[in-house]
């Protein structure tokens, strides 16, 4: 149970902004190294601007490091090309964002089907069945045919989670998934994540402000100014979580 699936080695992220003739470069992550184990439920915390979201996007192949290397299951993703990264995001990662970000023109079911259809590996019929199953898993089976604007924020976020799970990702990445929700809906999302981790041994990495949420995970990584300030494993992966 202790095999490493994500490994970051001396990752540096510097953003260069050209402001007129002036070149301003900002280092967000100076030099960070860490790894994640399969089945681990981790939380990355830290103040705003500490680079925790940037780290999550680097891990999830949404962004590329300026220096350093990132491996997913021993494959170096930081060396891949744009097209390969797109496939990787589709097959290996599932994302949940702070703003629920569903496609407004599509129903809940269609939104969940979208990652499955993107690569054309499955038939529409099978995608539909799988999506319905996932919606059931997140407790949204009765909202299949609703458009996002007919749903509450909490409901939208659960659908976003279902979508993130569409292609059975190796890692579920969440960026402030409860940042925009009230406490009741936040609680629902925590429980959902816990359930996914416990029942499916789903690897989850969550970026959050929410200490309460962070405490319920296996591992809490606190980042300040792009450096790891604290990295505490509170529980072993696979162990049950008390609430």
């Amino acid at each position: 149970m202790n095999d490493i699936i994500i490994k970051a080695e001396n990752v540096n992220k510097t953003i260069v902004n050209k402001n007129g003739g002036e070149v301003v470069s900002t280092t967000i992550l100076p030099d960070i190294s860490l790894d994640f184990r399969r089945g681990e439920f981790s939380a990355i915390t830290g103040p705003s601007g500490s680079g925790k979201t940037t780290l999550l996007y680097l891990i999830g192949a949404l962004d590329m490091p300026t220096n350093g290397r990132i491996f997913l299951e021993e494959k170096e993703i930081s060396a891949m090309k744009e097209e390969e990264l797109a496939e990787l995001r589709n097959e290996k990662f599932g994302f949940v964002f702070q703003f629920h970000f569903l496609l407004p023109e599509f129903t809940a079911l269609e939104n969940v089907m979208m990652p499955m259809l993107a690569r054309g590996r499955t038939t529409v019929k099978r995608a539909r069945e799988k999506a319905a199953e996932l919606l059931k898993q997140v407790g949204m089976e009765d909202k299949q045919n609703n458009k996002p604007n007919q749903l509450s924020g909490g409901q939208q976020q659960r659908i976003a989670v279902a979508r993130a799970l569409a292609n059975d990702p190796i890692v579920l990445l969440a960026d402030e998934p409860t940042g925009n929700l009230d406490s009741k809906n936040s609680e629902n999302i925590y429980s959902l994540f816990e359930k996914l981790n416990r029942e499916n041994n789903q690897t989850i990495i969550v970026v959050t402000h929410d200490e309460h949420f962070a405490l319920r995970t296996h591992r809490k990584i606190h980042i300040i100014d792009g450096k790891i300030d604290q990295d505490i494993r509170t529980k072993e992966p696979g162990s049950s979580i008390q609430s």
Binding site: G60, L62, E82, E83, A86, E87, L88, R89, N90, E91, F95, F97, F99, F101, L102, L103, P104, M114, P115, A118, R119, R163, A166, N167
Partner: peptide, 16 residues
């Protein structure tokens, strides 16, 4: 742009 970003995050390629 939001939708485009989402599509990219779920693995849509530039060409798509």
């Amino acid at each position: 742009t939001r939708d485009i970003a989402i599509l990219k995050s779920i693995g849509f390629k530039k060409s798509e």
